[in-house]
């Protein structure tokens, strides 16, 4: 996942902005990390370079 994606992604529940935290990166791609929505106080994981932005009740 490229960090520029943050410009169009949002929290699926409140549609507010997400805070990106990178755990590992390879060749400019984020492989592992989290998105955090401060309004909903929910973390969304990024694994295998793919963010999981399903609302918590649908995971």
């Amino acid at each position: 996942m490229k960090s520029e994606l943050l410009n169009i992604l949002c929290c699926p529940v409140c549609k507010g902005p997400l805070v990106l935290e990178v755990e590992s990166e390879e060749a400019g791609e984020i492989i592992k990390g989290t998105f955090y929505c401060a309004v909903c106080n929910v973390y969304y994981p990024i694994d295998e370079g793919i963010p999981n932005l399903l609302p918590p009740e649908l995971r």
Partner: peptide
């Protein structure tokens, strides 16, 4: 190409 797990009814994309 960018991939994301998400729901059609709760899209994680800005207005």
């Amino acid at each position: 190409l960018h991939c994301c797990i998400g729901s059609a009814e709760r899209l994680p994309v800005r207005n």
